[in-house]
Amino acid sequence: MFKNENVRKLLWPAVALLVILLFNVFFTENFLNIEVKDGHLFGSLIDILNRGAPVLIISIGMTLVYATGGIDLSVGSVIAISGAVAAQLIRPGYIHGILEYPDPPTSLFVVIGVPLLICAIAGAWNGVLVAFVGIQPIIATLILMVAGRGIAQLVTEGQIPVFIHEPFQFLGGGFLMGVPFPVIVSILLIAAVYFLTRRTSLGLFIESSGGNPIASRYMGIKSRLIVLSTYVFCALCAGLAGLIICSDIKAADANNAGLFLELDAIAAVIIGGTMWGGRFTLAGSVIGALIIQSITTTILAFGIPPEVTLVFKALVIIIVSLIQSEGIQDAINTWKTKRAQA
């Protein structure tokens, strides 16, 4: 039906997203309404994009890691670290027994730059373990997944520091030209990554290193460096997502920020159709992330306890994975040929 393979692969994820949205059109009141209040856009669809920004951003990083034949379980913990460091920079500690802000307030540059730098180091740690030490990705990143929340706890000294820092709050809660700022950040990030991977040869090298590391090395591709850089980038994405979450709730919750978000991101990538060690599709991951967030939003709108969302996510993942699986695809193709012959 679709000649271009890339388009064809996006078909089923797109259908799944449409089904979920259609369901909402019928069963959720005013689902399609978008209002303008105080010059800001509001509505369920806008909400999905806005709330979905962290998952979306991490999915982009996860896509590249996944394409190298890896996986990054530590993103949830890196989110916690990033938020904790930002909060601690805004309110560094107790003066005269109460939490005080430094004077002048910490500059936005520091509040954003330092956490991202720390996340980059965390990503480099993952990347070195995988690409240079040769530890299995799932084990290597499990280390930071477990240790990361502890590090975040240490940074916040076991508290949940709340803060006020208007320039920083804009990142997670602001609006630009009526659009929530996290949505703009995600769009810019997707565009930048698309440009960097598809308009240069980086994407091809990532796919090549993931598809056949030995052959890639024999062609003179610096496979290890490329794999390392995807982990650094993935951690940076997690750091950015962490800043958005922390800025939105004006607090750093080392225990719960980004909890289980690694699973959402991995699910988004798989639903989107990226190959483990091979072809990746950014558009697929974007659709995947939107599917995940739509499910969450839908269930919240129905007043069902949020824990139950996990069951629905599992269902969608199973269905999409089954449709994409080779066995089912073969069966469909055989059925089609048989029908064509009959």
Partner: peptide
């Protein structure tokens, strides 16, 4: 050690120059 099975003929050919 040779082919990248998942990539196209075009990509497999130009990879060494591009690298």
């Amino acid at each position: 050690e040779g082919i990248i099975a998942d990539l196209s003929v075009r990509e497999n050919i130009i990879l060494a120059i591009q690298a």
